[in-house]
Computed example of a mutant assay.
Amino acid sequence: MLYLSLPQAMANADTVMASAELPASPDEVVAALVTGEVERWWGSADTYRMTSWNADLRLGGSWSVVVRSADGRHLPASGEFLEIEMPRRIVQTRRYDWDHPTLGRKETTAAYLLEPIGDSTRLTICHGGFAGFPDAAAEHAEGWARVLGWLQGYLGARSPI
């Protein structure tokens, strides 16, 4: 049986770093992050769910999603793909298209870095652009740890590893 460590995340005044070892290949992890597959695992009944995922996975391509909160609100988010080096690295902008309580509509940038480790993949997320928004950075660090836990559970449930 494979034992994976719990996802880790931390923030400073400008950047959130989060990391997890995932029981899947880099290609499988990328698919879970940037295709409609995201709707299967990103969220929970007591927090929020991703719906209406749409992405044009190319340089300059856009992505959008609607976050359905546990209390029934529909909160859109979107961005653009800035760098794509499949399956090693994807960089995208992120923006809430509503007034987020700690970040407003400020655009941030998230980089997904994937490193194969045997039959697993180490995913590191570097999410920057929080300067002047320390509460948002701390909140997003907690959020990324939770999201990586969901992803780890989802990939582990379907993995023969």
Results as ranks from 00 to 15, higher is better:
1 M>V: 13
2 L>H: 15
2 L>P: 10
2 L>Q: 13
4 L>Q: 01
5 S>F: 12
5 S>W: 14
6 L>D: 14
8 Q>Y: 13
13 A>R: 12
14 D>E: 11
15 T>P: 00
20 A>W: 01
21 E>W: 13
23 P>K: 06
25 S>Q: 11
26 P>T: 04
27 D>N: 14
27 D>F: 15
28 E>R: 15
31 A>K: 14
31 A>I: 10
32 A>H: 07
33 L>Y: 03
33 L>N: 05
34 V>K: 10
35 T>K: 02
35 T>I: 04
35 T>C: 06
36 G>F: 05
38 V>T: 09
38 V>W: 07
39 E>D: 05
39 E>Y: 03
40 R>D: 12
42 W>N: 12
42 W>Y: 14
43 G>P: 09
44 S>W: 01
45 A>Q: 08
46 D>L: 04
53 W>E: 02
55 A>M: 04
56 D>T: 10
57 L>I: 13
57 L>Q: 14
58 R>P: 06
59 L>A: 09
59 L>W: 12
61 G>H: 03
62 S>V: 15
63 W>L: 14
64 S>C: 08
65 V>R: 06
65 V>P: 01
67 V>K: 11
68 R>V: 15
68 R>Q: 13
70 A>R: 07
71 D>H: 05
71 D>L: 03
75 L>P: 00
77 A>I: 02
79 G>W: 04
80 E>A: 15
81 F>S: 08
81 F>M: 08
82 L>W: 09
84 I>W: 08
85 E>I: 14
86 M>R: 15
86 M>N: 15
87 P>Y: 15
89 R>M: 11
89 R>K: 12
91 V>D: 05
91 V>C: 05
91 V>S: 03
92 Q>H: 11
93 T>C: 11
93 T>A: 09
96 Y>Q: 00
99 D>I: 07
100 H>L: 00
100 H>D: 00
102 T>D: 01
106 K>A: 12
109 T>R: 13
109 T>H: 13
110 A>K: 03
110 A>C: 08
111 A>M: 10
113 L>W: 00
115 E>C: 08
117 I>L: 09
117 I>G: 04
117 I>C: 06
117 I>D: 10
117 I>V: 08
117 I>Q: 09
119 D>P: 06
120 S>C: 14
121 T>W: 04
122 R>T: 03
122 R>G: 01
125 I>H: 02
126 C>A: 13
126 C>M: 12
126 C>D: 11
127 H>F: 03
128 G>D: 05
129 G>R: 02
130 F>I: 00
130 F>S: 02
135 D>L: 05
136 A>H: 00
139 E>Y: 04
140 H>K: 06
142 E>D: 13
144 W>V: 02
144 W>P: 07
146 R>L: 15
146 R>Y: 13
148 L>W: 04
150 W>P: 11
150 W>L: 13
151 L>D: 02
152 Q>P: 10
152 Q>N: 10
153 G>W: 12
154 Y>A: 08
155 L>Q: 09
157 A>S: 13
